[in-house]
Nucleic acid binder design. Structure first.
Lengths: 198, 198
DNA sequence: CGCCCCTTTGATATTAATCAAGAACTGTGG
DNA sequence: CCACAGTTCTTGATTAATATCAAAGGGGCG
């Protein structure tokens, strides 16, 4: 949707589907920086930074709403508190990056993947897209690998280990958490960084 | 200076010294999330997020200036464009997190450390704290390890490799880049993400 | 039915972590 | 000015985690 190096003049809101942001380095390896679900506005940064430092792309077929920056500026002028709300949104964005950094740098594979799943479960719950402990998780293992900094083969084996331990089931993009407490514990998951509560 | 879980009511500006932000996970491992040098305001996020999700701490003796949020709010009310400037500052913060995530997830040790050094060199240059290719780099190897997601032993060996290749010298906190082009190339460094240019 | 995309499996290679000392500094008090 | 105690850095040996390579299954869709 937007490429690294672009100078966009509008933001988008996800109405349906999943997007991700990523960057590819010289060796050809890709790091996914964030996953985005309906309700997210994944490119607010363009409002104050001229050049995109990463690419925004769809993981699934998606429906997107577009808002020109010009229009956002007008809205902010009319409703000054909107600026604070959007600013806050970008701060939560940054908090999520921090959450992922800890995983990338200091968690082993099992915990890293479990953590990502805990996060996406809560985020899906907040937007009403969970059914009990089940939700759509249309992320391919290769993408999961690029999000967690692992190889796809290792992601596959780690998912098997999570299944073997009875923590979750995942097939055809349908994920069910079978033991939330244990999953959280394996993930060392503390939702604080998502700032859902405030 | 500020701990995870705190609800601060002021921001700080670094006048002298280096700070870092970090989080410690259950296993006791620490991930440093960012390094901060004079001129940085490392805790602007508190302005709109109630609870700190990480700790802010000094790496060296430091001199800090404090600004109550209340005062910042007043200033913003008086000079509305200040809000945009501060917002932008937090967006650059997020961009730096993204830069680090790519390293943590997808770069090998040598490139990861080289990359960090390239970044700090440019940031020090911008604030006028470089002398040619030399600058103070008072970061212990343990801290470097926690910043790059490596073990301290491996950081030590990787630094030796960088020295062996004639890319830099580093002793007693004094760093000199001996071959900037090669260092950049090993690091696969593209300063775009720092948004220094705009 | 066949193709393509995704997942799974097995074998092997690498990178980096861990463990355990020892050496080199730093600052301190005598 | 020196002995020391505490950091920080360095080294060697070993182990563990994860990547890479290569190939084989499975399932959905035209």
């Amino acid at each position: 949707m937007i490429r690294e190096g672009d100078r966009p003049d509008q933001s988008c809101v996800i109405l349906e589907g999943w997007l991700c942001r990523y960057r590819i380095i010289a060796s050809g390896r890709r790091q996914i920086l964030s996953l985005h679900v309906p309700g997210d506005v994944p490119d607010l940064m363009g409002l104050h930074l001229a050049v995109m430092d990463h690419t925004l792309s769809a993981l699934t077929p998606a429906v997107i709403g577009c808002i020109p920056y010009r229009r956002i500026d007008e809205l902010i002028a009319t409703y000054p508190r909107l600026a604070a709300a959007l600013w806050r949104e970008t701060l939560i964005d940054a908090a999520q990056f921090r959450g992922w950094m800890v995983g990338l740098g200091r968690r082993e594979a099992l915990s890293r993947i479990a953590h990502l799943i805990c996060e996406m479960y809560l985020r899906m719950q907040v937007i009403g897209l969970t059914d009990g402990f089940s939700f759509r998780f249309p992320v391919k293992q290769v993408d999961l690998a690029d999000a967690t900094g692992l190889s796809d083969v290792h992601v596959n084996r780690t998912l098997q280990e999570l299944r073997r331990r009875g923590l979750l089931s995942l097939a055809k993009g349908d994920l069910t958490i079978l033991d939330w407490e244990q999953l959280k514990s394996v993930a060392d998951f503390d939702p604080q960084y998502l700032h859902l509560g405030d």
